[in-house]
């Protein structure tokens, strides 16, 4: 059996790290869905406030979405442009 090389270890750890980073993408999805559900309830209760509700939700959702993008970027960089391999 071949011994584990440093490069293989870094690649394996990077793959695990990328998987963990992708968890960050789930949260905003759940949060946005929850907000949209509550927004729909609000519009049902007060239809004239639709513009305000959509506007507030739009800004909140756009900020939340960026948080998911951070995780995605980390995962993709670990997988396809890993800077750690160059350090070996």
């Amino acid at each position: 059996m071949e011994p584990i090389t440093g490069k293989a270890l870094v690649l394996a750890a990077s793959a695990i790290g990328a998987g963990l980073a992708m968890i960050a993408g789930i949260g905003p999805g759940i949060g946005q869905g929850y907000a949209a559900g509550k927004g729909a309830e609000g519009v049902g209760r007060q239809p004239e406030a639709q513009g305000d509700i959509v506007r507030t939700m739009l800004l909140g959702a756009a900020v939340a979405e960026t948080t998911g993008i951070y995780g995605l970027i980390i995962a993709l960089i670990l997988l396809f442009a890993n800077p750690l391999i160059g350090l070996l």
């Binding site: 869905g33 559900g37 509550k38």
Partner: peptide, 16 residues
Amino acid sequence: VKMPPAKAQAYATSRY
């Protein structure tokens, strides 16, 4: 926001 709340939740999440 024009959908029923449960449907809106699933719709927004899937589109996300």
